[in-house]
Structure formats: C-alpha cells, structure tokens
Design a binder for these strands. Structure first.
Length: 596
DNA sequence: TGGTTCACG
DNA sequence: ACGTACGTGAACCAC
C-alpha cells in the first residue's frame, strides 16, 4: 500500500482513469455529516494497487480526484464520501456508486443489525480481518477499500441467487446519493425559539418538582424508577399495576389509572412530559447545529429489519407532533430563508392501502376506490349500520382496529388501548374479520407461508428471515407471527417511499425548480422550496409519490405548506379534507358533516 | 451495559 | 396457562 500526502495525489489521475471501479474507504474523526475531518481516505484499484491519503488535506485531495475522474465507487458504507462532496456543493453530480457491501449484506439479511466489513469478509470469504484498533488510519482505510472490492463478487452472486439484485441496483444503490445530499443540506432550526422554550420548560419543571415534594412530604429523585416505585407503591401505598423485570411499572398507562388516587400523579405525568421534551429536544438540538446554522441528521439504510430508514444524531424522525406542547418544538424547524417555505407531502393511510392490495380484500379495496372515510366505513361495515349513523366512539374503535391490523393485534392489545373489556375487544375483532374475510384469510395465509419458508417479503421482494417462528416458546413464536404480519406491510411502505425519493430527486434535477429534499419520515417527505415554486413542486411531488408503485387501490398524497414544520396548511381543498379526516380527534370527524 | 420510558411513523 | 400490537433512537438511572 502507498501512503501519500496532498502533494502526491495529482499524479494518480492516469491510474484512476484506467480503473473501471475502485474500492474506497474513509475514516472520519467524527461520523456526523459536516462535522468529521477525514483521518485517511483509501482507494483500491481492481488491479490490486492501494493508495491512501494521510490526513485531512491529502484525503480531500484524493476524494476530489476520484470525483473528477468519475470512476464508479465500491465501498462498505459509501455515503459519508458522497456527503463530503455534497457539503462542498449540494448541486454537483455525485460520484457514481457501483456497489455498497454494507447495504448488500443488509439486503441479504436485514435481521442482523448493521454488519461491519469484518463481518462480511468473514461470512463471504471465510477470512479474519486484522483488528482495526491496532492499525493506523491509512492502513485501516486501505484494508477496508480492498476488502469491499473483494467481497463484491460473492455478494453479487448471492443477491442474484435470491433475486435481490434488482432491489439493490434499482432502489438501494440509487438511494445512497439522495440520502447523502439530504444529510449535507440539513434543516434550519430557530435557536431563539428553542432558548425561549428552554426557559419556560425549566420553570414548569421546577414548579412541578416543588409541588410534588410537598405532596409526598420529602424530596427524592423523580427520574429514578427505583425511588419512584418505592414512593408510589410502598410509601403512598397506591395500587400496584403491571410488573417489569425489575419491579412495578410506572409508565404513563399505569400512572393514568392512578390519577384519582393521589394528587401527585397528575403532576408527575406533566413533569415527565416536560423533562422528556426538554432533555431530548429543547436542550439537545441546539448543540447539534453545524457551522452552516443547520441540523444534519444521519440516515441509516442498513439498520431496520423491515426495510425502513432510521435517523440519528439527531433523530429527526421523532420530532414531536401529537401534543400541543410538543408541537411548539416542531415550530422551531423552519425554512432557511425568508423567500423559502417548507412543503410536506405524506402518504395517506399507506399501510392500510397496502394491506388492501396484498390481501385482495374486496371491501377494503372498494372503500379506498371510493375515497371513503376509511375508519367510518370500517365501523359501518363491522357494525352493520349506515356510515352516517356511526358515533364518535364507534369510529374511534374502528380506527384503532385499522391501525392494529398491521401489527397482528390481539384482543388484549386492543382492549388496553381502547380502554374497554377484553371480551368486547375480542367481539369487535371477530366481527371485523367476519366483515373483511379477505383480510382474515390473508392473516392466516401469511403466517402459514412465513412458517413454511422461514421468511416473509415485500412487494419488491425484500426479505426478512423470522427464526422466531420455529421457537418452542409460545410467547416468542407469537412475536414471530406478528413480525410476519407486519413486515410485508411496513416494508412495502418503505419500498414505495424509497422509490418515490429516488424519482422525486431525479425529476427535480431536470425540472428547473430549486427545491431541496430535506427529510424522509417513513411516509412523509419534507422539502424546502422558493415560495413562488410551491405549486409546481407540489404537482411534481404528488404525481411522483402517487405513482411510485401502482397498486390495486389508489395511493393518495396530502400536501401541506408553511413557514415552519408546525404551521403547515393544506395546499388544496382536497388536502384540507384529507388532513381533517386523518388528524383531528375522532370526535371532531364524527361530528363533522360528511365530505361527499 | 441493560432496563425503562417515551418521542415518532 | 401464558403474555400480549409493528418498527425505530435517545435520555436517564442502576449496576
């Protein structure tokens, strides 16, 4: 291996141009986008030559040369190299990605969480890689670049054997550059708004703490589950609820039942909400703002066993929205300049539509074809009543069942969430399956299929092995059955979202629009766009997302626009109606006049 | 490090 | 009889 400084990079150009692909690996002192400086970057040729740049200057020079020659990249986690390029210029064409061994290994077995290059080499080549900790950065990068090149062929053969090569080539690989660009672009955050929230939350927390200590009679650590358990169940002698491995549970559903029993419970619940929001968001997010004034998440493409993306450092897929207090945090996510706005496009009921498609259930398909209020429609069909006679409670129950379906819901689960007797929950579920026999049949069939072949798959063929289905332990086996029900639905939704992201990014490039894709939150895409281009962007995004994968039911996308991520207003009348049905509390929807 | 809790879809 | 709705990530406490 050759180690070079910045001055020794330039004369590598003829060699790079002679390679039809190169293995690449970068080692960063901080893995977060726009944070880390490279310690080393290595390039391995198909001719066996390996060159490593030593330090930030040489690594950047080598990366620039690779980008300039346009040689296709092979690596184990290529995204950080693309992020570095997009950080310099988000509008540049990225280096082409020929293969990513981390993502290939994930597609082959999504049940294992993120495999290292050493794991893949051991599996594919039956060789042990030297321990990375003992090697200098240049050697480590060189070894990884070469290893990635070496495991490509065996991985490609296995992918083709199980017909996963197209999923990798047409979805996962093109997605890498889309995600890299999103990470490099980031999202703007209003620091002052968060600072004000911090002051307000802190004073509420202080007040609640003082009041709770008075109610209890002495101080203790409210955040300690152990001390809290002692106070609640042994000092105040409140009724004990569910058990955990370590003691009695004090989670919100338990505390909810204890509210009438002691005045401190209400305050404790409120204290929990404030401290959660303060420590996870209000305090943490400002410290993660980069030099460009924006937040840059990292998307993980090889973690979730269903095919979904995840997000970390910070996680921007769990920014609060469900409560008014939480939404004040979302309010701090803003468009980055006065002439820009945010545009959010989300798939309406995508998982239930996928269930309608894969099960072929005629009644569910018909309801979606008619663009009916799906929860009301469900209640009406299950209870044998006209839709306009459905009460708020009945619609709410149907809504919970519709959500629970994709999770392999039990009567117990429904009963605890709907706060009804288990027997009633069981009756509703029975009536549901009688009314939607196609769904009932599908649930049995998918479990059988999963058991016989050991895995389940999405519409694009993405697979998840489920060894739990063969467990002797009935609890574990039950968990396996629920995974078997959920993965094809959640995973197909992920497939659709990924196709949409790739096509939207592609069409934006050729559109003359200046919009940027910022975030993907499972069934939602968030963009930043010049105000005067909103209409054109909305049309492009809606059409692309709705057409991502034709199903037996229409895919419907709701579009909203606003100056921040909280104050979003529906773009059209149809978006407004859909937003109302999807988001308002059930009572409001049941009370509202029918939309047509 | 593992357990608990809770933020999101 | 048994434990019980899928998938994530982060903060905090206890060991």
């Amino acid at each position: 291996m050759e180690v070079r400084d910045a001055a020794g990079i330039g004369d590598l150009e003829p060699w790079l141009r002679s390679q039809h692909a190169v293995g690449v690996s970068v080692l960063l002192d901080d893995p977060r986008p726009r944070r880390g400086a490279p310690l080393a970057l290595a390039v391995a040729g198909v001719d066996g030559r390996v060159v490593a740049g030593d330090g930030a200057e040489a690594s950047d020079a080598l990366r620039h040369l690779v980008e300039q020659t346009g040689v296709p990249l092979v690596g184990h986690e290529v995204k950080p190299i693309l992020v570095a390029g997009f950080a310099e210029d988000p509008d540049r064409l990225p280096a082409p990605v020929a293969f990513d061994t981390q993502i290939a290994a994930y597609v082959l077995n999504a049940a294992l969480r993120s495999q290292t290059i050493a794991d893949v080499v051991a599996e594919q080549l039956d060789q042990i890689l030297p321990s990375a900790a003992e090697l200098p950065p240049t050697a480590r990068a060189g070894l990884e670049a070469l290893s990635a090149l070496a495991v490509r062929d065996p991985l490609e053969r296995r992918l083709a054997d199980v017909q996963l090569d197209r999923l990798l080539r047409e979805v996962e690989l093109p997605l890498i550059a889309v995600l890299a660009r999103m990470e490099a672009v980031g999202v703007a955050l209003d620091r002052d708004a968060l600072a004000a929230l911090d002051r307000e939350f802190r004073s509420e927390i202080d007040r609640l703490e003082r009041e709770i200590y008075v109610d209890v009679g002495h101080d203790f650590n409210l955040g300690s589950p152990k001390q809290l358990e002692q106070i609640l169940f042994f000092e105040l002698n409140l009724p004990k609820g569910r058990r955990t491995k370590t003691g009695y549970s004090t989670d919100a559903s338990v505390l909810e039942d204890l509210r009438p029993a002691h005045p401190m419970i209400d305050k404790l619940l409120e204290w929990r909400i404030y401290t959660k929001l303060r420590s996870t968001y209000v305090e943490a997010l400002p410290t993660l703002i980069a030099a460009d004034g924006r937040l840059h998440t990292t998307f993980h493409q090889a973690v979730a066993s269903t095919g979904r993306l995840s997000s970390s450092d910070p996680n921007l897929q769990n920014i609060p929205i469900r409560t008014a207090l939480g939404r004040r945090i979302r309010h701090a996510f803003v468009a980055g300049a006065p002439d820009l706005v945010l545009l959010a496009a989300d798939y309406s009921q995508v998982e239930l539509r996928i269930l309608a498609h894969v099960s072929g259930d005629e009644h569910l398909k018909d309801a979606f074809a008619r663009h009916a209020d799906i929860h009301r429609e469900t209640a009406a069909r299950v209870l044998h009543k006209p839709p306009e006679e459905i009460t708020a409670d009945e619609r709410s129950m149907a809504k919970m069942v519709n959500f629970g379906l994709a999770y392999g819901m039990s009567d117990f689960g429904l009963a605890s969430r709907a706060n009804i007797p288990r027997r009633e929950a069981q009756e509703f579920i029975n009536s549901y399956f009688a009314a939607y026999s196609g769904i009932s049949y599908y649930m049995m069939a998918i479990k059988e299929q999963a058991k016989s072949q050991g895995f389940v798959e999405t519409l694009l063929g993405r697979k998840r092995q489920i060894p739990e289905l063969r467990a002797a332990n009935p609890t574990l086996r039950g968990a396996g059955e629920r995974m078997a029900i959920n993965m094809p639905i959640q995973g197909t939704a992920a497939d659709i979202q990924k196709i949409a992201m790739i096509r939207v990014a592609e069409r934006l490039r050729g559109s003359g629009l200046d919009a940027r894709l910022l975030l993907s939150v499972h069934d939602e895409l968030l963009f930043e766009t010049p105000r005067d281009q909103v209409e054109a962007l909305a049309a492009l995004v809606r059409e692309t997302m709705e057409g991502a994968l034709p199903l037996a039911v229409p895919l419907v996308v709701d579009v909203k626009v606003g100056d921040d991520w909280e104050s979003m207003t529906p773009l059209t009348r149809a978006d407004a109606i859909a937003a109302e049905a999807d988001e308002l509390p059930d009572e409001a929807v049941a009370a509202a006049p029918l939309a047509g």
